[in-house]
């Protein structure tokens, strides 16, 4: 858990999240002076006493970027003073770790200021929340789902989303469901998840669904079928807002893949027979 602890510690700081957000927007290496200028105009308050551009620049080089580098989130070149967002490769295997989520929740909930990461318990509430997220999307909707029945219950809200011109991407490991979706929603990009954690052999708990709405609202739900009882337990965590810790974390983890999908979708469209 050492690595996760460090990751959570780093991500619980608004200052670090502001830096990661800017680096994420940049998509390539950014000079520390340019980064300082962006922070000074957009996030000066997170740097408290050193709010001048020069002060921020010094803090970035001597404190924040080396710290994010050692947490494995950023590569900072101290010679050339340029920073790049890392793609979290080292963190991914921990993604399935239940303790990780527990820790994540307790960490953010003891923050006290506000209820920034919420919990939804039980399948019914999870489904309801899922529908709400689909309904809220204005521009982009990313759905990854493991449960055919539940997804069918969301068909009407997905339909409504495509009618609002929302860019919908849908991934499922069930070939049958992929065919159904392709047939029913021609505007929806469907793909077969290549992600290890979605296809992993039945480890419990497993991720039942992940919905990202406009890249600023996230529902991630887990289902545990290892229980002796007949009904599998399901619970979800939700986060809303561009700076929400859960949203930031999921977006960072998914980021390169979301972008990859953009490339992929062009190919997909070419291959479609209509």
């Amino acid at each position: 858990m050492k690595q996760e602890n460090e990751l959570l510690r780093v991500l619980s700081s608004p200052r670090n999240r502001a830096i990661l957000k800017l680096l994420n927007e940049e998509a390539r290496a950014i000079d520390v002076s340019k980064l300082a200028a962006k922070i000074a105009t957009q996030h000066a308050e997170t740097f408290q006493r050193s709010q001048s551009k020069e002060g921020i620049r010094i803090s970035l080089h001597h404190r924040d970027l080396p710290k994010l580098d050692s947490a494995g989130l950023v590569t900072y070149d101290i010679e050339d003073n340029v920073a790049t967002l890392d793609h979290f490769g080292a963190v991914e295997p921990e993604w399935l770790d239940m303790e990780f989520f527990g820790e994540l929740l307790s960490r953010f909930q003891t923050g006290g200021e506000r209820d920034i990461v919420g919990v939804v318990e039980g399948r019914q509430d999870v489904v309801q929340t899922a529908r709400k997220l689909v309904t809220n999307a204005d521009r982009e909707l990313f759905i990854m789902i493991d449960d055919t029945e539940v997804f069918k219950k969301c068909f009407d809200s997905v339909q409504a989303a495509t009618e609002r011109d929302v860019d919908v991407t849908c991934g499922t490991r069930h070939a049958e469901l992929r065919d159904v979706v392709r047939e029913r929603f021609q505007e929806v990009t469907v793909w077969d998840p290549q992600l290890d954690w979605m296809n992993a052999p039945s480890r419990n708990p497993r991720i039942a669904r992940l919905i990202i709405s406009d890249r600023n609202e996230v529902l991630l739900s887990l289902r545990d079928e290892s229980d002796e009882s007949d009904t599998p337990t399901e619970f979800g965590i939700i986060g809303k807002g561009e700076d929400n810790p859960l949203v930031v974390l999921v977006r960072e983890l998914m980021g390169p893949r979301l972008d990859h999908l953009d490339y992929q979708s062009a190919d997909f469209r070419k291959q479609l027979p209509f």
Binding site: H62, L65, P66
Partner: peptide, 10 residues
């Protein structure tokens, strides 16, 4: 120059 110094946090 300050930015040529190695990170103080180290």
């Amino acid at each position: 120059p300050i930015l040529d110094l190695p990170p103080l946090i180290d």
